[in-house]
Amino acid sequence: MARITYIEHNGAEHVVEVPTGVSLMEGALQNGIPGIDGDCGGNAACATCHVYVEGDWLARTGERSENESAMLDLADGLEDNSRLACQISASPELDGLVLRMPASQH
């Protein structure tokens, strides 16, 4: 279980608990959090769950895979702390993680 804070581009905050092993894309969808679409169902194949990982959390979310990098490279608003939320699994180590969303998912 991890408490995750999702911050929409307009600043709206959503704090939810995501069970261990569930992706942070799924965590957003299951809690009805706007701004994350997850069109491909969690295969790093569409880039509609693009998020920015806040602060020191980035290293703890692991490395981008080759396919995740390829999709992010084609997404709008790529930053050093960009990740696809479907490629990060909730775990106790991520308790307190903060994610911000880009202006739009594309």
Partner: peptide, 15 residues
């Protein structure tokens, strides 16, 4: 539910 999860736009880098 989850109507967005379809493959009409393709997936991957050529989406």
């Amino acid at each position: 539910p989850r109507a967005r999860q379809h493959m009409s736009f393709g997936f991957g880098i050529h989406r």
